[in-house]
Design a protein around this nucleic acid. Structure first.
Lengths: 168, 168
DNA sequence: CTGAGTTTTCAGAGATCTGTGAAGACTTAG
DNA sequence: CTAAGTCTTCACAGATCTCTGAAAACTCAG
């Protein structure tokens, strides 16, 4: 029954493929999936590269991306020159927060349009609709995510790993 | 001061460029922006194509996309063989709802992973975190959007255009 | 029913994106 | 301080995506 590992890798690759269709780059998605589905706490760039069968150059870029996105973190490796990476606690909430920046951009784009078009024109009203919607989402989303974070750290469920600060 | 139109087109193109960075295809984004920023109620495929300087083939694909997405709609053109398109009322809420399908996919992917990995393993716990987060978002988002729709149709603000049914 | 006007489809050219592999930079054990 | 191990950068090749242009299909006005 050691095939469990292979099945997991398959599931990870399948998941990565799905993510790809939602805008994430292929390599970034695959690396993220690998770190999400692994049974180890951390993985080195070499391990991931070997598992995915890709070059070190590709790894470097993907790991940088994911780190900047706040999805993974570098873990100091004692007595080893290799860098260890692991999925960050609270990564999903962080990701969702990042995506909220899109809401800001949409709101700003609408405002710009209204200025140019004039408030009381066809385009102006259409853009005002857009602005109102995104302003609403922008005002509600952070609270929604905060409620999640609060509930999560609040419940004394399975403290599998201590919750590290700096959620955002 | 007829340059207003040109400025609007510039603003539209700039907005389209932004959308592109968030996963939308270039042509689709440009067409959507054109219909969003126009001072007319509707535009024909020909008008959009001329404004953007692209072929009819490209238009066809983009318009099909946007229609399926629920962002725009075909408007029956009386006494003309040309199809007229316009931005749909409530398009933004519809778009956001569509994006929620991604939440479902994430939840399902996590469930699959947990099954394969086993609940009480490192990967299993990591995936359970993911599943819980997306299940939470999935349970809250529809209500959030509904609240918006209710508020919007409820307020007797500027009934610029009658609200057409079939929001989703 | 006919045919002009319009939309859709599709093969191929061109543009864009992505990963490789090797060179150089960096880091730290010894 | 040195050198072996590891990471990062980058030019280029291959893969992929996107738009064009023309041909086919469709749709109505007459």
């Amino acid at each position: 029954m050691l095939r469990v590992t292979d099945d997991l890798i398959d599931a990870a690759e399948h998941f990565a493929l799905t993510l790809t269709q939602y805008g994430l780059q292929r390599m970034t998605a695959r690396v993220m999936a690998a770190l999400l589905f692994t049974q180890q706490d951390t993985m080195t760039a070499g391990e991931i590269g070997a598992q995915l069968g890709v070059s070190s150059g590709a790894m470097s870029g993907a790991l940088k991306n994911l780190t900047e996105l706040g999805m993974i973190e570098r873990v100091p490796a004692p007595g080893s020159r290799r860098e260890h990476f692991r999925f960050r606690d609270g990564a999903w909430a962080t990701l969702m927060s990042k995506q909220n920046m899109a809401l800001t951009l949409m709101t700003e784009a609408a405002d710009t349009g209204i200025e140019v078009a004039g408030q009381d024109t066809l385009a102006g009203r259409r853009l005002a609709d857009m602005r109102d919607f995104y302003a609403y989402m922008l005002s509600e989303m952070p609270a929604l995510i905060d409620r999640w974070s609060a509930r999560r750290t609040g419940e004394s469920g399975s403290p599998a790993r201590e919750v590290r600060g700096s959620q955002m």
